[in-house]
Design a protein around this nucleic acid. Structure first.
Lengths: 206, 206
DNA sequence: TTCTGGACACTAATAGCGATTGTGTCAAGT
DNA sequence: ACTTGACACAATCGCTATTAGTGTCCAGAA
């Protein structure tokens, strides 16, 4: 019985802790959106999260570490979103790619933090991007690898080289359209998907 | 005779003036490369160009105007370079595109000013990019239009929509590879050219 | 004429310096 | 576990004096 209780208590503690982390992270996210990373005060984070300043420090250690966790959470959520979209479309890779691109464009449009990470843009207001040493630098690489895996599964008849080219196109053209948009996300997504389909389906003669 | 002499003198004066402008611009270019736009001193420009500070002011009016002329000259040279490459390859559009991309990648690699203009990157050391109001903002548009014209001439059998897609690909993928290079210019250029060829040649079925 | 060189007013960048504000840590209290 | 208050230390701010640079004018030389 004792072991069981210990386990139960540990789980309870863990869940409390993780919900605490989430609350703090939520608070930080909102405040960063308002005042930018430089304008963020640990005291405000604690206040908005409904905890003491000390708790924030014991949980995250420092402001920099809090920033790390913040962008890591955002990155993970984005990657999960992409995965979910791709899964939802199953064998229809073109549909999945279109939806994934649109999802990415919309995310970048209303999430300054992820936009900064996706476009690797330093400076500006996204000063916290100095913290992307952990899991956000290789964001695009991760996304590329993910997309490549789905492509290999859904389009086994396409040769590997063509798939590589196509995946590279998706990623680079999407980022390009985040930086310099010319049409609403939906149209842009369809346009890129069309381009990419051509790249994948045509085996050149030379 | 009098009119002739006047004309001759005017031409002489013009040529002196333009060579003066060039010298000053050359001096400014070198100094900007060393110390950045903010670190540039009009006195240094004059000194290196071998003229008095006053002459620089009478010729350009202000430091800002000098910056304008500087980026305009660089932009024009780049555009001329692209044109020349495209002309040299004549009907061989794929060869021309490949060479043009490589030219662009190499230019961006060793010309910070043009790199800043091409990637529209503000801030950083390219503080003078605040001056791209004249002929550099539409640089990419101009290049796109140019490429489109050549494409229409060399590939009349390709439908217009496909040509548009292909040209967009060339421009966006090239810029993308300036920002995030993964291979030397030559390889990258060939890769992009291959992608673009596929986009142009395949008419999709849907 | 065209360019030079020096003199000038005015403005922007710089350095120094309290005063303020915020980070990060500690210990005692709940 | 979390809070509260206190603290040392560092970064930032507002202010001032000073420097350095822009932009202009004009007398003189080529």
């Amino acid at each position: 019985m004792a072991p069981h209780r210990i386990v139960a208590m540990t789980r309870y503690t863990d869940s409390v802790r993780s919900s605490l982390r989430e609350r703090v992270l939520d608070a930080a996210y909102g405040l960063v959106a308002d005042a930018g990373w430089a304008g963020l005060r640990m005291a405000h984070v604690a206040e908005r999260a409904g905890v003491s300043r000390q708790t924030v420090y014991t949980e995250f250690g420092s402001k920099d570490a809090l920033g790390q966790s913040l962008v890591m959470r955002e990155v993970d959520r984005f990657l999960d979103g992409i995965r979910e979209v791709l899964d939802r479309y199953g064998e229809d890779l073109r549909g999945g790619v279109t939806a994934g691109i649109e999802f990415t464009l919309r995310t970048a449009a209303d999430n300054d933090l992820l936009k900064a990470v996706l476009t690797s843009q330093r400076g500006g207001d996204g000063e916290l991007i100095a913290h992307l040493t952990t899991r956000s630098e290789p964001l695009l690489d991760t996304a590329t690898a993910m997309l490549g895996a789905y492509a290999a599964q859904a389009w086994p008849e396409v040769d590997e080289y063509s798939r590589e080219l196509a995946v590279e196109c998706v990623v680079r053209l999407t980022v390009s359209n985040i930086v310099q948009p010319v049409a609403p996300p939906e149209q842009t997504a369809q346009r890129i998907a069309r381009i990419v389909t051509r790249v994948a389906l045509l085996k050149d003669e030379d």
